[in-house]
């Protein structure tokens, strides 16, 4: 876990990291270039036209169009960014997602200061959730009578996903707006109560990555963290069997069977 972070961007652990990192690096390179050139010109002007004896200012008239040339280049650069980079990638990341049958679908119910994940379990169907069943032992209000829910696996603050297969998170919230943010996956999406918003990502690196909340959600907003474990397919099957073996009660801190290279379950 420690190895993932440094001063620059965290380690790239999902298919989104490529385009997003490219965009950030490209824009920052352009910003540095613009700023350096601009600063040199600025310093030159300050030195060249500072007040000196015997030389007064000349109010010669210059057509302002000349000054708009640098602005024109900035505009061309921005239009290129929009057309070739932003719109296609935005479509790929936020609008066009994988179809549910080829991806792992997980339900996420965010609440004040915890992430509740619900996996469909072997039958592939999610149990119904209802507000009246919510109590401390059953945070997401899983309907006990619903047969589809019998084998559902629910975990708190732990997301287990297999490598090599995209994951779709159908996210909703019980109380206020939260925001699912995993720096390594470069994913972030606000979770609005009363709306079902889905988010997808495809991990490319096994390991343990941190889930954070990016939208102020109350007093313990900074405590609202979780772990996203990316297992190799075989480990994932082992984890699934281990989970369905136990009763579908919430498994708060299950033994991480995966090769979590993190030192401690933080």
């Amino acid at each position: 876990m420690k190895g993932n972070y440094g001063w620059g961007l965290p380690v790239a652990a999902s298919t989104f990291a490529g385009p997003i990192d490219f965009g950030i690096k490209l824009i920052h390179a352009a910003m540095f270039a613009i700023f350096i050139l601009w600063a040199i010109f600025f310093a030159y002007l300050l030195l060249r036209y500072r007040r000196r004896e015997g030389r007064s200012a000349q109010a010669g008239y210059e057509s302002p169009l000349k000054s708009l040339i640098p602005d024109f280049f900035v505009l061309v650069f921005e239009i290129a960014l929009i057309v070739f980079y932003a719109i296609p990638n935005w479509h790929r990341i936020k609008i066009a997602g994988p179809s549910p049958d080829t991806a792992l679908v997980v339900e996420l119910v965010a609440e004040q200061f915890a992430w509740n994940f619900q996996y469909p379990g072997p039958d592939g169907k999610f149990g119904r959730r209802d507000v009246q069943f919510i109590e401390p032992a059953n945070p997401i209000g899983l309907d006990p009578q619903d047969p589809a829910g019998k084998d559902d696996i629910t975990t708190v603050n732990e997301l287990h996903v297999p490598l090599g297969k995209p994951t779709i998170l159908n996210m909703s919230s019980k109380d206020v707006i939260h925001s699912f943010f995993v720096p390594e996956f470069r994913v972030k999406q606000d979770i609005v109560p009363g709306m079902k918003i889905s988010l997808w990502f495809e991990p490319t690196l096994a390991g343990r990555f941190e889930i954070g909340c990016a939208q102020l959600c109350g007093v313990a907003h900074s405590m609202m963290r979780g772990d996203a474990y990316v297992h190799t397919p075989s480990e994932y099957e082992a984890w699934l069997k281990a989970q369905s073996g136990q009763a579908p009660a919430t498994t708060a801190a299950n033994a991480a069977t995966g090769n979590s290279n993190g030192s401690s379950t933080f």
Partner: peptide
């Protein structure tokens, strides 16, 4: 004001662009 407001304006670029905003929003 000129260079410093310039930095403020320039750093608005990655935030105004939808894709890079995914990572940089609310940070």
């Amino acid at each position: 004001f000129l260079p410093l407001f310039g930095i403020g304006g320039l750093t608005g670029l990655p935030l105004g662009l939808t894709v890079t905003d995914i990572y940089l929003h609310d940070t």
